[in-house]
């Protein structure tokens, strides 16, 4: 369990996306519970955190125009992020976020 000011989030990669993140499939992150202007940390904050702290190469393969690149499926606790408000989803302690690249064809 994280402290009051932090929250623990597990992120996982699929479809080859782990290659951009040091070839590591799972990360357990401890993130601040709030960011800028005391807003609760959300997925927007998480992806910027991933870009700045975890991404090892070629940001354009992960992000496009400040969001996740088209062709990457995001599951928040096994649910499509489109059902959870995408970038605006407020992270909760123990959340599991999966990023799957769908770009490797048929």
């Amino acid at each position: 369990m994280a402290s009051e000011n932090t929250l623990k989030v597990k992120i996982e990669f699929g479809g080859g996306l782990e290659l951009l993140f040091d070839n590591k499939r799972i990360y357990d992150l401890e993130l601040p519970a709030t960011f800028e202007d005391d807003q609760p940390s959300n997925v927007d904050f998480l992806i910027r955190y991933m870009r700045d702290k975890l991404l090892k190469e070629r940001v354009e393969l992960f992000m496009e125009k400040d969001t996740i690149r088209p062709g990457i499926l995001v599951l928040i606790n096994d649910t499509d992020w489109e059902l959870e408000g995408e970038k605006d989803y407020a992270l909760k302690d123990g959340d599991e976020i999966v990023f799957i690249s769908t770009l490797h064809g048929g």
Partner: peptide, 23 residues
């Protein structure tokens, strides 16, 4: 699968634990 998008294929592979080697 010509009526099934890449997103659904990826979700199927993920939820069924299929080993996607990648091209």
């Amino acid at each position: 699968l010509q009526d099934v998008g890449m997103k659904e294929c990826s979700a199927w592979a993920w939820w069924h634990g299929l080993p996607v080697v990648q091209k």
